[in-house]
Computed example of a mutant assay.
Amino acid sequence: MKNCLYVFVFVLILNMMGCSTSRIVLLDSGKSTNAIIVKTDQGELTLNEPNTFTELASARAIPTKPKTISPEMMEEEYGALINSTPKPPIKFLLYFETDKTILTTQSKQLLTEIKAAVKERIPCEVNVIGHSDRMGSKEYNVDLSLQRARFINAWLVEQKLGIANIIVESYGEEAPLIPTADGIPEPKNRRVEILIR
């Protein structure tokens, strides 16, 4: 699973010889729909082209016309800052065999990727949320989905990754990916969601 979100905008306060200037930069996210509106009492400006910026002499100043910054200049001036920003949250879905806490073969293959995602975000918080399909009673499914979440929690702890906090939850059959009637087996609902942030 690839990262879908990254820091698109950052503000750099430059202090030079007693003056302070704010620079607002729209980073290249790889998507074409990103934009930022810079608004002050004196005017408004939209940045909607990647690697463009505007500057403000004060909170009440008119934003300057957009200027382009080359990727090389971006790296030289802001590379260390950009690289030091936290990685964006990432979500994984792990699926389970019917009525069990045994991962499907495909889901087992994601475990290495999950470990790498955690390591990239240390220190991080991880939410582990168990789910079930609608086979069995509601009470049974809450318990089963909790067992699945605890299974993944135990695996994460066993990896000794240095996670700051793990939150374990169980939704049972209440939040299906694929809505079904009672008694209908649905493999995509037998899952644990892992959110790493």
Rank of each mutant, 00 (worst) to 15 (best):
V157F: 02
L146F: 10
N153D: 15
L146V: 00
E139Q: 11
I129A: 13
K138Q: 07
W155N: 13
M135T: 12
Q147T: 00
R148M: 02
F151M: 14
H131Q: 09
V128M: 08
R134I: 03
A154Y: 11
R121I: 07
R121F: 08
I152D: 01
V142T: 11
N141V: 10
G130Q: 06
R148P: 07
R150K: 14
G136P: 05
I129R: 12
A154S: 15
L146W: 05
I129F: 03
I122G: 06
E125C: 06
M135V: 14
E139T: 14
V157I: 15
R150W: 01
R150L: 14
N127F: 05
E125W: 05
A154N: 15
I122C: 04
A149R: 10
E125S: 12
V157T: 15
Q147S: 07
M135H: 00
I129Y: 04
Q147Y: 01
V142C: 04
S137L: 10
A154W: 08
D133G: 01
I152F: 04
R121E: 09
A154G: 13
V128R: 10
F151L: 03
G130V: 03
I129G: 01
Q147I: 00
N153I: 00
R121Y: 12
L144H: 06
H131E: 04
D143R: 08
K138Y: 03
L156C: 06
N127L: 12
S137W: 08
D143C: 02
Q147L: 05
N141C: 09
D133T: 05
N153W: 10
F151Y: 12
I122N: 08
Q147V: 00
E125P: 00
L146T: 01
P123G: 03
D143Q: 13
S132Y: 02
R134W: 05
E125D: 02
S137C: 07
K138D: 10
R134C: 08
N153T: 10
V157E: 15
N127H: 04
N127I: 01
H131L: 08
K138I: 02
V142I: 14
R150V: 06
N153Q: 14
V126K: 07
K138T: 08
V128D: 05
V128Q: 05
H131A: 11
L146D: 14
L144F: 10
N153A: 09
W155V: 08
I129H: 09
K138P: 01
A149V: 11
K138W: 01
G136R: 10
R121D: 07
F151T: 14
L156A: 11
A154H: 15
H131I: 00
Y140F: 05
N141T: 08
Y140W: 05
R134H: 13
R148A: 04
I152Y: 05
L156E: 14
V128E: 07
L144I: 09
P123L: 04
L144M: 15
S132C: 12
A149T: 11
P123I: 11
P123Q: 06
V128T: 09
D143L: 11
A154E: 15
D143A: 12
V126W: 03
